[in-house]
Amino acid sequence: MDMKLEVVVLPVSDVDRAKQFYTERLGFRLDADFPVQDGYRVVQVTPPGSGCSVILGDGVSQARPGTLHGLHLIVTDIEQARKELAGNGVEVSEPFQDVTGIFHHPGDADRVPGLHPERASYGSFASFEDPDGNQWFLQEVTERAPGR
């Protein structure tokens, strides 16, 4: 049986501010905005090229705004992605790799400044936060690992 991740629920404090950030600054597609009733509003946005959408809104999550860390946007050129996001007013970290060379530690721990020396697929990252402090990572993937 296939199981596909298609929606991630993102806790935000101000739905309109978050909607603007994700659609105007990140370029996510606005799929839906349902103001169902007072205290319950569902907004769905989708990153360009992604099969997984993000739902944010009022009354859609019990998590505190700003507590979701570790979401990844996969890009084929991390430098170009950083340039585009920065051009849209997003504060993006400089590229980094992890000291282990495998993935990355949470937060800023064990970051090595700069792109992966061989620009190895899966090896270079950058990070940014939305207005609530939810943390996202850009990860450069140019060649998929076998079976992916």
Score class of each variant (00 low, 15 high):
L68Y: 15
Y40W: 08
R111L: 01
V60A: 03
T67L: 11
R41G: 04
D77P: 04
I102H: 07
S121G: 10
V54R: 09
I55E: 05
P106N: 02
I78P: 01
S93L: 06
A81Y: 09
G123Q: 03
D110Y: 06
G123F: 00
L68K: 14
K83A: 14
V43K: 01
P95H: 02
D58F: 09
S121L: 06
G59N: 04
L85S: 10
I74P: 04
A109H: 11
L85V: 14
F103P: 06
A81E: 11
H105I: 04
I102E: 08
A120E: 05
S50K: 07
I74Y: 11
Y122V: 09
G49R: 06
A109N: 09
E91K: 15
T67P: 11
G39V: 09
L68Q: 15
G107I: 01
V75L: 06
G59C: 01
Q80C: 13
Y122L: 09
G39T: 09
P65C: 13
V99P: 01
S61H: 04
G114M: 02
T100V: 03
G57C: 01
E118P: 00
G101L: 02
G107K: 00
Q44V: 15
I78L: 08
G107S: 00
R119M: 06
S124Q: 05
D110W: 06
G59Q: 03
G66R: 07
L115Q: 01
E94M: 08
H104A: 08
V92E: 05
R119I: 05
T76V: 06
A109G: 03
A86S: 14
P95S: 03
E118K: 02
R41W: 02
S124K: 01
C52E: 13
G87E: 05
R111M: 01
L115R: 03
D108L: 03
Y122P: 08
V42S: 12
E91V: 15
V54I: 15
P65F: 13
P113C: 02
D77R: 02
V43H: 00
P65G: 14
R82H: 09
V92M: 08
P65N: 13
